[in-house]
């Protein structure tokens, strides 16, 4: 009985041990197999001014600091002081914030100037064909407004008569 049987058993044991052992070094080096799928990065539309990336829903304090002194700051208390929305005017665009959990988070960016373009290259005055060329077909169209959603951010491109005349980034409230 020892001959082949024993060898098969031994081989099986070795194979099992080897299989069981692979996760140990892999694990020790910090791989967490099970969690990989959950860690898909949250993507969102990002507006860029100079070197500063403005992400919807992010903390506004570092962004405002990086952008420097705004041309104008507008603050609006909501009814019964339940939050103070702020809109900072910069050259070419406006940055809106909304309080959330004690922090002013970025809630919107509104492009004002045809000279300013989105990171993907869209500008006010572009024809609507540029929209689909730069952002693809994953939009919803309503009354001439192209809306794209990525993560928790929404990009709304307003057109009148086929020409882009307003671009707005908003954070989608959860």
């Amino acid at each position: 009985m020892r001959g082949i049987r024993g060898k098969v058993v031994a081989a099986a044991l070795v194979a099992t041990a080897a299989l069981a052992a692979t996760p140990v070094p892999a694990y020790a080096w910090g791989f967490s197999f099970g969690a990989k799928a959950e860690e898909k990065a949250e993507e969102s539309y990002v507006f860029r001014s100079g070197e500063t990336d403005i992400v919807m829903g992010g903390d506004s304090a570092p962004v405002v600091r990086a952008l420097g002194t705004p041309l104008d700051t507008f603050e609006a208390d909501s009814c019964a002081y339940q939050g103070k929305d702020k809109i900072y005017s910069y050259s070419g665009f406006e940055l809106g914030t909304h309080p959330d959990g004690g922090v002013d988070v970025i809630s919107s960016v509104y492009v004002l100037d045809p000279a300013v373009s989105t990171p993907e290259g869209l500008q006010l005055g572009d024809p609507k064909s540029e929209i689909t060329k730069l952002y693809g077909k994953g939009y919803t169209l309503e009354n001439g407004v192209y809306r794209y959603v990525k993560g928790s951010s929404e990009l709304a491109i307003y057109t009148t008569g086929g020409i882009v005349d307003a671009i707005e980034y908003t954070a989608i409230a959860e």
Binding site: F31, F33, G34, A35, K36, A37, E39
Partner: peptide, 16 residues
């Protein structure tokens, strides 16, 4: 998912 994750690591270098 656990199984797929392992397959991913073993055969695709754990790119996620």
């Amino acid at each position: 998912n656990f199984f797929l994750g392992n397959v991913d690591v073993l055969f695709f270098g754990g790119s996620g």
